[in-house]
Amino acid sequence: MKILHIIKEFTETGNVDTIIEDQEAPDNEVTIFRLKENKDYAKLVDLIFASDQVYTW
């Protein structure tokens, strides 16, 4: 399963880290996109539609 976690600029991660870490299993391909550091929106859109599940934190 392809999972995308989008981390927004002002998000306090907290238990978000727990969720991401626990989903990083052999069956899952987890990608983290940090909007504070990366504004490549075309790449982000590609990732959104290439992923089975999308989280925006």
Partner: peptide, 17 residues
Amino acid sequence: TMQNVPQKLLEYDHVAP
């Protein structure tokens, strides 16, 4: 438990935090 949440969430089409 917080440990059980990540796997449970994988069942959903959309997740809206």
